[in-house]
Amino acid sequence: ERAVQTATEAAAVLAGLHADRAGLFDGQPTAHVEAALAQAIGQAVAGRDAAQAAVSRAADVRNRAAGQEQAARSARERADADAAEAARALNDALAEAGLDATEARHRLGFGERWLSDEGAALDALTAALREAGVRHDERRAQAEAHAAARPPLPAADEGDAPSCPPSSDAPEAQLAGAETALRDARTALADLAARLRADDQRRSEGAERRTALAARRLQAAPWLALKELIGSADGSKFRGFAQSLTLEALVAHANAHLQELARRYRLRRVPGAGLELMVVDRDMADEVRGVHSLSGGETFLVSLALALGLASLSSNRVQVETLLIDEGFGTLDPDTLDIAVAALDALQGQGRQVGVISHVPALVERIGVQVRVRALGGGRSRIETVTGG
């Protein structure tokens, strides 16, 4: 009898344990629960691996950006060094020519008219020099002829007064004046020729330096453009550039979905405002509006289009597989609700999982597979899966 009683009590305890386990696992067999847990663990591991791969790719992108930034910084340093060397060479040339930068810029600013005038002046001085040389030769020949034709003076006793007046010094004075004018003209001509040669040399050197400077600027242009694009020390410019590219793609996908959800609106980036968006109202002659001016239903449709666009974005190995939408359907009229549900059905037909959290009865009736949460009282709830609405 004691053994029977013990067996009865053990059976009662076992039955209670079975009842408790059935309450814990909602009546499902342990094998099914274990399989579900194993599947959940596998999905979590896969998600973790995908996240680690994304982190690795982000690190690669960051390392490449850092390398590009370092290369751009090195190129800029080389360009600065070349510019400093060119400035030193220019200063040496100016010092050798005995000019300062202001005078050099002033002389380089002379145009073709000034060169033509200087050339004409030089030609005039050359002609004057030739004319003075001819006059000098003529005067010398005249002086020699006059000296040869002059008769000899008669001999006179000492103390006698001269019988004729002394000869004039006019030819010698004219000859000395011509020689002086000739020397002055030659000096002026040599000075102008030296100035012209120095100016030609400076112009040639200036042209070479301008050509070298233009080549340096052309070589540095891509690096300067790269610096303007992603050259910030904290990486904010590059990050903003990458985000702007992603936003452009997201807006394109969202506008494609807006064609079905709300043909009246089209999204567009705000020019010069980074990552902000605005709405183009087609029914109001493409009036540009802020997103905050939309009504509740319009805001939900635009948000849904952006979410669908985000789901459409994918890379080679990462794809958004699940879309969860929390409320927002209560502001839609029946026709718009039909359009939104059709869009979600199409997205699900592409192999993605779509989850909707809503208390709208009209929407609940349209969802084929539902996960319902029922309150049991006492702070407890029951989760159950319902198929077919």
Rank of each mutant, 00 (worst) to 15 (best):
R113G: 09
V386Y: 02
E118Q: 10
D117H: 08
D20S: 12
L189R: 01
I383H: 13
A66D: 09
A75Y: 04
A59M: 15
A35Y: 06
A124P: 05
Q68S: 03
S56N: 09
L267D: 00
A53E: 13
S295I: 05
R150Q: 12
A181W: 07
V320C: 07
Q28R: 07
Q142K: 06
A340K: 00
A220Q: 03
E9N: 13
G368C: 14
D184E: 15
P271D: 12
A15E: 14
A132M: 13
P151H: 10
N91D: 06
L250K: 02
A212L: 03
L301Q: 00
R380S: 14
R105E: 02
L332I: 04
R64D: 08
A65E: 05
P151G: 13
V13H: 13
P152R: 11
R289E: 03
G133V: 03
L258N: 00
G330A: 05
A36N: 09
P162Y: 10
I41L: 13
L122I: 05
A84P: 02
P151V: 14
E276C: 12
V33G: 06
E158T: 14
F329I: 01
A44W: 11
A305V: 02
D286Q: 05
L90A: 04
A22M: 06
V320D: 03
N316I: 12
L347C: 03
D326K: 05
A89F: 11
Q319E: 15
E205W: 00
A59G: 15
L337H: 01
V61R: 11
R186N: 09
L323M: 10
S167A: 13
S244C: 08
A101L: 05
P165Y: 10
A305I: 02
P166V: 15
D338T: 12
A120P: 01
A22K: 04
A7K: 15
F25V: 09
A311L: 04
G109A: 05
A58C: 10
L224G: 01
E1Y: 11
R382E: 11
D160W: 11
L301D: 00
K227G: 10
L294Q: 00
S204Q: 12
G42P: 01
A40F: 11
W223N: 03
R269S: 13
T387G: 14
A10P: 04
L301F: 00
V386T: 09
A178V: 09
V13E: 14
F238H: 01
R239P: 02
S236T: 09
R209Q: 04
A185L: 15
A93L: 09
V33T: 05
S244G: 08
T299D: 09
G133Y: 02
E77T: 09
A127H: 08
R2V: 15
A307V: 01
V318K: 03
R130E: 04
